[in-house]
Design a binder for these strands. Structure first.
Length: 550
RNA sequence: UGGGGUAUCGCCAAGUGGUAAGGCAAUGGAUUCUGAUUCCAUCAUGCGCAGGUUCGAAUCCUGCUACCCUAGCCA
C-alpha cells in the first residue's frame, strides 16, 4: 500500500494545520477512538477509526483506544474483545488502551471542584420534573427550587450521594449554567446520576456515575487529547464540553471537539438498535452474519481490511450529511481482490453437456492460469472429459440479440479447452433441459495454435465426473422499507444454492477468497463449511455482465 | 432559526476573491481464451435561490429557501 503521499486532506486537517502553525498544542496531535462497549463495531465506526488513527499517523501523533464506559446499565464487557479484534484487523494500533471508568476518582474531584465554585448543585427533582422544567425548544426553562443550595449543603448531599444514601433517581448533580439558554444542553444539565449497579471495572465502588457531557471532556483532557473528533449530533454539546473544562481551568491547552458527518451507505442499516434487534430475535446468525454491516460481518463476508480502509479514504470527511453509494464500497473490494485472488471454475444452475465426438474413457488435465492479470500466481490443471457441466446463464435455447455464448448451432470456446458447438438440445419429459449434445474441434485445443477460426464467446465449465458440489450463498439487502416506511428484514436477503465446482475447490480453507468465473468474488466460510460441504459467501459480483435488453 | 449545522455533476468531495481537482456511477471506443481487468475519450459557461460589492465571486455582503441535529438521570 502506498502510504501517506497522496492522502487527501480534509477540513480537520486544515484545523490541525492551523493549530500546528499557531503552536496551540506545541505541534502535538493526539486523538482517540472512544467506543461505548454496547455492541459490535460497524462500517460507520470504521470511518471514525480510520479518521482518528490516520489523522494521528499523518502528523506523527498518537491515538488511544478508550472505552467510554460511564453508564454501567448499558454496557457489557462481552463486546470489548470484538472491538479490539476489529480495530487490529483493520490494521491500526492504539497508543494506549484505556477505560473512562479509571478516571472516576478524578471526575468526582472535578465535580467537587464545581460545587465548591458554586457552579454545580444537587437537585432533588425527579427525572419527570426536570424534563417539565427544562422548557421547550422555543421557551426557556424554570430554575430548580434546589438551585440555590449552599456550597456546604451541596457538598454534604453530593458526598451522601456517593456514599449510597439515596436511591436511583432520587437526586442528581447539575451544572448551574442558565435555564434560559437557547441551547437546551446548557439549561443546568445533569452531570452525575445515581445508579446502584455493578460496574464491570469498578465493581460496586461507585453508585454515582458521570454523564457523557461532563465525563468526555475530562477523559480527553486527562489523556492530553488535542483533537476530540466526534459526530455531528454532538455539535450542540460542544459549549458544555468547553464549559466544563473552562470552569475547572485545570488544563492548558484544552482539547477541542471537532464534529464530522457520520457515514450512511445506501440500502444499509447503520442503527445499532436495529442491528442488535436482528441479532437478539435471531433474524441473523449473529453480529458476524455476513449480511451485517458490522466489521465482523464484512470480514466473514470476505471484505478485506485494505478495501475498507481504501473506502474510508475515498469517502472523505466533511460536515454535510451524505449517503455514500454501496457501489463505491463494492468498487474498493473489487479493486483490492482482483489482483490477489485466484479464479476457480464454478457453474451455477448447471446444464449437462455431452461431447459426442470425445472418447468415452478419456480424461485430459488442462492447464489453466490462476489469475490472468497476475502471472506470479501460477496455474493449475483441471480435468476435462466427455461429460461436463456449463453454467445455466451460459446457454439460451432461443438466444436474444447480441448473445454470444452457447445456443443451438453456435460454437464457443470452452475456457482453457476447445471450441465446442451445440448440436442438439435433449429434453426431459417435463420439457426441462436434460443435456446438450455437442461436438468439439480437436484442432482448437487451448494454447496449441489453431488460430484460424474465431469464436465470439468463451464460457467456463466443470468436468462432470470429478465435479464437487458446494453451497453458495448470495446476499441482497438486509432491510427493506415497507409502505409505512418501517424498516424490516428482507426475506430475500440471502439465497443459498448448490453449485458444481472444479475438484481443486475442495482444498479451499476457511477465509480463502476466489473469483468464481463470471460470477464474482466469493469467500470460503469457515464458520459454515464442513469437510463434506463447503459454503461460499458472495462478496461482490463482477462489475457488469451481459444484460438482456427488452 | 429557540438554538446549532449543512447546501459544489446521479453519489461522495476538493476549492478559503483570480476565472470549477479527483473518485464512484454512467456513456462511447480499443484490446481481451473472464461481456472481468486494462486502456483511451465524454461527463458542472456551472457551485440551493435572488440581489449586491468587485476589474474579477463557489469563495465577501444582504435577503430568502430546503434539509439535518437538539427538549435522556443514553452515548
Amino acid at each position: 500500500m502506498s502510504e501517506n503521499e497522496n492522502k487527501s486532506s480534509n477540513f480537520i486537517h486544515n484545523i490541525i494545520d492551523k493549530d500546528i502553525e499557531s503552536g496551540k498544542y506545541g505541534g502535538e496531535v493526539y486523538t482517540r477512538f472512544p467506543p461505548e462497549p454496547n455492541g459490535y463495531l460497524h462500517i460507520g465506526h470504521a470511518k471514525s477509526i480510520c479518521l482518528n488513527f490516520t489523522t494521528a499517523e499523518k502528523y506523527g501523533g498518537r491515538c488511544n483506544l478508550r472505552y467510554d464506559d460511564t453508564n454501567p446499565v448499558k454496557e457489557d464487557v462481552e463486546y470489548v474483545d470484538s472491538i479490539e479484534e476489529d480495530i487490529k484487523w483493520l490494521g491500526f494500533s492504539w497508543d494506549k488502551k484505556l477505560w473512562a471508568s479509571d478516571y472516576f476518582p478524578k471526575m468526582y474531584e472535578a465535580a467537587v471542584e464545581l460545587i465548591k465554585k458554586g457552579e454545580a448543585y444537587v437537585c432533588d427533582l425527579s427525572a419527570d420534573e426536570i424534563r417539565e422544567t427544562r422548557g421547550t425548544l422555543k421557551e426557556p426553562g424554570k430554575e430548580s427550587p434546589y438551585r440555590n443550595r449552599t456550597v456546604e449543603e451541596n457538598m454534604q448531599l453530593f458526598k451522601e450521594m456517593k456514599a449510597g444514601k439515596y436511591k436511583d433517581g432520587e437526586k442528581v448533580l447539575r451544572a448551574k449554567i442558565d435555564m434560559a439558554s437557547p441551547n437546551i444542553n446548557m439549561r443546568d444539565p445533569v452531570i452525575y446520576r445515581i445508579a446502584h449497579v455493578e460496574h464491570h471495572n469498578t465493581g460496586s465502588e461507585w453508585c454515582i456515575y458521570p454523564m457523557y457531557d461532563f465525563a468526555h471532556p475530562l477523559e480527553d483532557a486527562i489523556e492530553g487529547i488535542t483533537h476530540s473528533i466526534c459526530t455531528l449530533e454532538f455539535e450542540d454539546h460542544r459549549p458544555l464540553y468547553d464549559w466544563s473544562l473552562d470552569q475547572l481551568g485545570w488544563w492548558d491547552p484544552q482539547p477541542q471537539q471537532i464534529e464530522f458527518a457520520r457515514l450512511n451507505i445506501t440500502n444499509t442499516v447503520m442503527s445499532k438498535r436495529l442491528l442488535k434487534g436482528l441479532v437478539d430475535d435471531g433474524s441473523v446468525e449473529g453480529w458476524d452474519d455476513p449480511r451485517m454491516p458490522t466489521i465482523a460481518g464484512l470480514r466473514r463476508r470476505g471484505y478485506t481490511p485494505e478495501a475498507i480502509r481504501d473506502f474510508c479514504e475515498r469517502i472523505g470527511v466533511a460536515k454535510a450529511n451524505s449517503t455514500v453509494e454501496m457501489a463505491l464500497l463494492e468498487h474498493c473490494v473489487r479493486e483490492d481482490l482482483q489482483s490477489r485472488v485466484a479464479s476457480r471454475n464454478v457453474v451455477f444452475d448447471p446444464i449437462k453437456v455431452v461431447i459426442t465426438n470425445y472418447p468415452e474413457d478419456k480424461t485430459e488435465e488442462l492447464a489453466m492460469e490462476n489469475n490472468r492479470n497476475v502471472p506470479e500466481m501460477g496455474g493449475r490443471t483441471v480435468p476435462f472429459s466427455r461429460e461436463l457441466y456449463v453454467d445455466g446463464a451460459d446457454f439460451m435455447e432461443v438466444p436474444v440479440k447480441k448473445y454470444f455464448r452457447l445456443f443451438p448451432g453456435n460454437e464457443v470456446r470452452f475456457k482453457g479447452a476447445y471450441f465446442i458447438k451445440c448440436e442438439e438440445v435433449v429434453k426431459n419429459d417435463d420439457g426441462t433441459i436434460k443435456e446438450l449434445r455437442c461436438t468439439y474441434d480437436p484442432a482448437t485445443k487451448s494454447g496449441e495454435g489453431g488460430e484460424g477460426r474465431k469464436v465470439k464467446g468463451t464460457i467456463h465449465w466443470v468436468d462432470a465426473a470429478s465435479a464437487v458440489a458446494i453451497k453458495v450463498r448470495e446476499y441482497g439487502y438486509l432491510m427493506v422499507e415497507d409502505e409505512q416506511g418501517e424498516e424490516r428484514l428482507n426475506p430475500d436477503s440471502v439465497k443459498e444454492m448448490t453449485c458444481y465446482a472444479e475438484p481443486l475447490i475442495s482444498e479451499a480453507k476457511g477465509g480463502d477468497r476466489f473469483q468464481f468465473f463470471r460470477h464474482g468474488y466469493y469467500i470460503a466460510d469457515s464458520k459454515l463449511s464442513t469437510d463434506t460441504e463447503k459454503v461460499f459467501n458472495s462478496i461482490i459480483g463482477l462489475k457488469s455482465s451481459f444484460k438482456i435488453k427488452k
